[in-house]
Write a protein that binds this DNA or RNA. Structure first.
Lengths: 133, 133
DNA sequence: TATGCTATATGTCAGAAACATATAGAGGAG
DNA sequence: CTCCTCTATATGTTTCTGACATATAGCATA
């Protein structure tokens, strides 16, 4: 049987390391609002916090390029320091607006999840997710 | 620019009719727990409540067949009444367990959304999604 | 020189959802 | 009787996201 949420056939999903999907864009924008950085740093930040979202390099770099194409972030090459050159990203005013639109969307989605959880709780009054660690 | 959440290139998404994704399985299971019915009825139920999830016939019938394959529901042909024959679905004990697993998962996802919203609120104290109707 | 880390990027595949279409029984309008 | 609509189930196709694998390259150090 597949797992709830994304139905991967194998077992290395929906294990404790499994993250929430679809929030990579807003997390990147929010992290960049705290201060400009490069992709690898964002990758480490997301990877270090289990409560954020997936930290796949492929997806992350592609998403940053997409955000840049759409004018949500801008990048400049940073050759200072050691190691390979890194692309330094910064959020734009449009990006901040988009981040707010994301916050609205996430707020709405949370409402729908609550609606389902309420309906489930009404059908199963004895069910308590907190006790199912 | 694409829209938050699913990035469709066109504009007929993220309009008022837009629903939350990924909850079709649990909604079907929950509705079937309230009582056995056929697919078209479930389609109408989901379609009538904006706060549930997408009501696409193709996805719904395919999902029901998948749930049956996995032993979460069982179906019998119902030729009573007028109109074409309908497949009457009922949830199984395994389906109820799976529904609870879904509730746990949704609860966890909700926590991640809260985590993002808290982080966003901390960065933008004046932002209020309620006032952005 | 070889390996490991930093850093960015591309290729491929599976799965969900959107959208269109196919099939068919039954009832009513004209 | 024929056409249309509603009920009901099912399939085909496309697009997008995310997962996973791989490629490239600079630099440090053993």
């Amino acid at each position: 049987m597949s797992c709830p949420e994304h139905h991967h056939a194998d077992e290395h999903c929906c294990t404790p390391g499994c993250r929430v999907h679809g929030l990579l864009q807003p997390w990147l924008l929010l992290l960049l609002y705290r201060g400009p950085t490069h992709g690898y740093h964002l990758l480490e930040k997301l990877g270090a916090d289990e409560r954020t979202t997936s930290a796949d390099p492929g997806l992350l770099y592609r998403t940053l390029r997409q955000l840049e194409q759409d004018g949500m972030v801008v990048s400049t090459w940073d050759t200072e320091g050691s190691g390979p050159a890194r692309r330094r990203y910064a959020i734009t005013p449009e990006g901040v607006d988009f981040l707010h639109a994301w916050a609205d969307e996430v707020h709405r989605v949370r409402g729908r999840l609550d609606y389902f959880l309420d309906a489930h709780a009404a059908a199963f009054p004895l069910f308590d997710p907190e006790e199912r660690r």
